[in-house]
Simulated scan of single mutants.
Amino acid sequence: MKTFKCAIIEDSNTQRKLLEQIIDKNKSLKLLHSSSATTESLAHVNNLKIDFLFLDIEMPIMNGFEFLKGLTITPQVIITSQNQKYALDAFEFNVTDFLLKPYSTARLDAAISKAIEKLRSIKKKLPESRLLVKHNLKQIELNVHGILYVEALGDYVKVVTEDRNYVILSTMNGFNNRLEAKKFIRIHKSYIINLKMVERYNHEFIEIKNKKIPISRAKIVELDRLLNCFE
Score class of each variant (00 low, 15 high):
Met1Asn: 12
Ile8Glu: 03
Ile8Gln: 01
Glu10Tyr: 05
Lys17Asn: 12
Lys17Cys: 07
Leu18Asp: 01
Leu19Tyr: 01
Gln21Glu: 15
Lys25Ala: 12
Asn26Cys: 12
Leu31Val: 13
Ser34Asp: 06
Ser35Thr: 04
Ser36Val: 10
Ala37Asn: 06
Ala43Lys: 11
Leu48Gly: 10
Lys49Glu: 14
Asp51Gln: 11
Phe52Lys: 07
Met59Thr: 12
Met59Trp: 02
Met62Ser: 01
Asn63Asp: 15
Gly64Tyr: 00
Glu66Asn: 13
Thr72Gln: 14
Thr72Ala: 13
Gln76Leu: 03
Val77Asp: 00
Ser81Phe: 01
Asn83Cys: 05
Leu88Tyr: 08
Glu92Gln: 14
Thr96Ser: 12
Thr96Arg: 07
Asp97Lys: 00
Phe98Leu: 02
Leu99Pro: 00
Pro102Tyr: 00
Pro102Lys: 01
Tyr103Pro: 00
Ser104Pro: 02
Ala106Pro: 00
Leu119Thr: 03
Arg120Trp: 00
Arg120Lys: 15
Ser121Glu: 14
Ser121Asp: 11
Ile122Thr: 14
Leu126His: 04
Arg130Gly: 00
Val133Met: 13
Val133Asn: 04
Lys134Gly: 04
His135Ala: 07
Asn136Gly: 02
Asn136Phe: 09
Leu137Cys: 08
Leu137Ala: 07
Lys138Asp: 09
Glu151His: 09
Val157Ile: 15
Thr161Ser: 11
Glu162Val: 13
Asp163Thr: 14
Asp163Met: 07
Arg164Tyr: 02
Tyr166Thr: 06
Ile168Tyr: 05
Leu169Ala: 11
Leu169Gly: 07
Gly174Met: 07
Arg178Trp: 00
Leu179Thr: 07
Glu180Gly: 06
Ala181Lys: 13
Ile185Trp: 00
Met197Asp: 07
Asn202Arg: 10
His203Thr: 12
His203Cys: 06
Glu204Asn: 15
Phe205Tyr: 14
Ile208Cys: 06
Asn210Gln: 14
Lys212Ser: 11
Pro214Lys: 05
Pro214His: 11
Ser216His: 08
Ile220Gln: 05
Leu223Val: 09
Asp224Phe: 04
Leu226Asn: 09
Leu227Trp: 03
Glu231Gln: 05
